[in-house]
Structures are given as C-alpha cells and as structure tokens.
Design a protein around this nucleic acid. Sequence first.
RNA 1: UGCCCGGUGGUGUAACGGUAGCACAAGGGACUUUGAAUCCCUCAGUCCAGGUUCAAAUCCUGGCCGGGCAGCCA
Length: 570
Amino acid sequence: MENKSQPPNQINNNFIQEIIENEQKSNTSAKQLVTRFPPEPNGYLHIGHAKSISINFELAKLYNGKCHLRFDDTNPLNENPDFIESIKKDIKWLGWNWGENLFYASDYFETLFEYATKLTLDGKAYIDESSQEQIRQLRGTLNSTGTESPYRNRPINENVELLNKMRNGDFEEGSMVLRAKIDMNSGNINLRDPILYRIIKTPHFKTGTKWKIYPTYDFAHGQSDSIEKITHSICTMEFEDHRPLYDWLIENIHIHHPQQIEFARLNISYTVLSKRKLSELVEKNYVQGWDDPRMPTISGLRKRGYTPESIKNFCNKIGVAKRQNTVEIQLLEHCIREDLNKNCKRVMGIIDPVKVVITNYPENQSEKLEAINNPEQEEMGSRKIEFSREIYIESNDFMEDPPKKYFRLSPGKEVRLRYGYIIKCTKVIRDEVSNKILQIECEYDPNTKGGYAPDGRKIKGTIHWVSSSNSFETKVNLFNNLFSVEKPDEYDSIKEVINPNSMETFHNSRIENHLLKAMPGDKFQFERLGYFCVDKIDSISNLPIFNRTVTLRDSWAKIQGSTNPKISQS
RNA sequence: UGCCCGGUGGUGUAACGGUAGCACAAGGGACUUUGAAUCCCUCAGUCCAGGUUCAAAUCCUGGCCGGGCAGCCA
C-alpha cells in the first residue's frame, strides 16, 4: 500500500529541520542540539508564541536535544514578575517541559558586563555622551549614511572608567550609553554603532537595585544564547537584520557561536496577534481580559475549550517557512473539532429553547430512553435520558413557514426526537401581543420509541431536545470571530473592524441533568450544535456555565447562506 | 534613493535539476437517528521575461510585486 499521508502529529519537513539534518550528516562535531524559547515577561503568551514554542521544543525532541526556557528580562521598565508564572503555566499546559533548564537573562548580568568591559578594553566599544536626540540624528536614515559621534574616539581608559561609573549609578538616566564601534556607514542600521548598555534606575524584579545599567536586547540576547551553549537560536524574521550584529558581538567577544535562524511569524485570519493590539483589546474593554475566550492567547484558548493537543497539532500543520503568511482560522477550528469529536461525550442542550407539549402523552408519566455517549468510541457507553409530556427544542428547529429542504419541525410535519419518539406538530400557540411563539403542541407516535419507525417510513429530520423535568436552566456563551474582516491588521483602528457580535449570551439555555455536576474545563459535544466547555460554576445558581468552543460544521447554514450560522436572532 | 528577506491552487505547506504532492477551505456524491462524523470524487497553483540544460518551481540574469529595518523596546 502506498503511504499517501504522513503519520499524524509529525512535524512538517521544514527548512530549519533541513539545516539541522544537513549539519548532522556532514557532521564534524556531534554536538547535542540546544534550542531555547526566550519570552520577555511583559505579556501573555498567544498562539504565535505557541508556534515558536512548538518549533523549539519539537526540534529538541526530534534530535534528542534540549530546549531551555529563558526569560529575557533586560528591561525593568516593561517587565513584571506576574508574567513569569503565567508564561510557565501556559508552556506546561501545552505539554512542554524545560526540566532543569529555566534561566533568566538577568542571571548573566555580571558576565555580560565583563563582556562589555572586554569590548571596551579592546577598543570596540565606547561611552557616548550624546543625547538621545543627537544619537538619532547622527545615525542617519534608511537612505543616508550615519555620522560618527564626537565621542567615538575617546581613549580606552576613559571609556573603561566611565563604564564603571555608569554601573555605579554616578550618572543620570539618558546621560550616556555604551555603544559598539562598528560602522556608521553600514547599509544595515543595526551596525551603526548600536547601543549596548543604557542607564535605567528603575529596580529590576529579580536583581532589585543592584544594577543601574541594563544591556539592550542586542547585547543580552546573543550573549545569553552563547552562555547557555545554544546551538540554534530560532527567532522571527524581524531579527534577520540583527544577525550581522549578533555574529559580530559573539565573534568580537570570542565566545561560543550559536546559529541564529529566522522564520516567519504566524498570522491568523479574523484575529490579531501583536502584543500591542492584544493589549488594546484588553485595555479598551473590547474583551473581558487576556483570557477572554475570544482572545488568541493561550489562556483565552484554554478558557474557550481548546486542548493542548489541538494547538500542538495546529502548529504542526501550519509548517515553518520564511514567507509572509496568514493561516485561515478554519484550520485552527478543524484541529479542535478533530480532537473533540474523537474524545467528547455527546449530550443534549438547548441554547434557545422553545417549549413543546406532547398532547397525547400522559400528564404524570415519564420514561427512560437510552442515548449513546460517543459514536466514535463505543467504550464510552450510553446513558439514560428522560422523556415526558413537556420538552424543549431549539427555537430554530421549528419554522412555521419553512423553506424547501428544511428537515426540522413545522406545522403538520413529522420529525424525530433524537433517541426519543417521532412527533408531529399539531398547533402553534403565539402571544397575542408580541406574536412570539409561546408553545408548540405535538403528538407523538407511541410505536416509535427510540426513534425507530416500525412501518419503515422515512423521517429525514432528527432534532435534539431535553425534557423539562430532566434538564436545568443555565447560561451559555457563544463566540464568533473577534473581527469582522479577514485581515484586521490592514486597518488603522481596531474599532472600525471589531465584530460587535463576537459574543452572545443566552441566559435560559437548558441542558440535560447529566451535566449538573460538570466541572470547569469539562468538555462536551452538544449534539447538532457544537463543542462546549464549562467556563465556571455560577456563584449564585451553583450551576455550570458553558462556553461554546466551536460549532459543528453546518452544511444547512451554508445552504441558507447565513453568515451567522447556528442560533440566529429569534 | 540604502541594507535584508520572500513570491507554488482560495489559504498554509512540500517537491533539493527528472510525474507539481499533502492539509484546510470550496463544490459534488455515498452513508446517516447529530444537516455531525466517516468514505469517494471534483475544482484549482509554480509572479514576469530571458538564459543554462536532454530536462527548471528548483540554477543564472534582469524586472515586477510583497514584507522588514532609522527605540537608550524586544
């Protein structure tokens, strides 16, 4: 048999793997592969980070190496220890383990300073007392070369002395910086005497007030990689221009030389993935927090009901390359459906209920019917559900004047109640004032218990239901795309493209009693609707509140040409 | 009028000079007590122009288009 598809969950062949593969083949020094994930503790992780985490940890796993977690905490102005825990939690939740290899760039401040001293001693770095404005002026522009600073040729001993005084806190913030002496004429602006250290007197959450100067990203990052003996330093494309500087510093300090490799960051349709825009959503209260189920953050996805498995799978499917990309959000949805379909218990829940009275079913009678828990996994068994005279069905499973090919309930028509009976609609009762449907009356066919028609008549439609006695009323949140356009990044303001209907809450949904004791995070398929998870237990009612993770695929909605599938306005 | 990177179906990603494949999406069909799942089928692609070669998505040259870079952010 031909092996047509690749084994599940195998990472796509990508160019980084190819580089490593080639190194191992032609290999001279059989070094152990060491990668790292280097977040700055200044925000929450999102699915773009998950891609990076996945690349780094997956590679380590694949080549029997290791992946470090290193917090890039070089700027006390931006960073906050609260983020440390959330970042660790999210990585662990995704299923990755850095083991003993947890580091902080701040652990290396002393060594970094030694490196800076060495460069200064070698005449490769100098103290510049120009103002921030002057430095910018002299840097030149994209189309013009820079000009050397008047401080560039300061004697070495003076530089060393000033550097030490800078460290001691003898100078004001902004009064001077340490710069590498490279090339003010370079076409690459990063090489025009980049700043290595700046004075910051804000205390650092780890080193306190010990340091008055802090290394910039360019000076801290590569050297930290080197100290940790990283072999492959994988980052996103915007650092490509920094690679010549990364290499220059390491070569001029004469230390272990990791290889920086850049890949294209992830973009997903109908959402944003930049830290700035994500914060804006939170700060301007477009969402309820970083972990709002509409957010593409790891914590948001978790609250939404995504599983680590589905996210990892997604990361494997999107591949790794250098070209700009926007992955359709449908692929993410596919990944979570794939996982949940296999593993979730089926259950019946009515988002927007309408009452149905079975007029020929005795008033005080009820009976138990058998329902299968998961047709994908027989081991999951079955459960009993209760049928009685008064039940609820989904309001959009009834239409008084249905279009053709509508297989659900309508006047005079029959429909099957899943695992129940075949019923026929006999009457619709409306509110005289509002004309709203108050109640639907049906008759059931007693010979169709379990939903089987002994006379062999074909019943095309099957709908979900709960009996009023065997269900509880609770709140259900439905989510849609946060943005109404495919590429929100292309618009100036979030406001003009945010989807006003990204969240819809139903307060009177009815769920079968089977879920009374469901706990936060528990996941279910509500038959015919989608996958839902318990958001939390309501503090007043003590009942679970549900979030819709994703709808089931819905070919009826497509036929209808509806842009808002499932539960439309009543 | 600088430096760097990139352009393969609608989207994402393979093919390493030798049959352009996979996934998602879309369309159709089979099955169906979830309009789900599953299964089958279909649609659809190498930015352009030259060159090298028996043979080019792949190598070369020149265009065109897209992206990144002028923080004491990362």
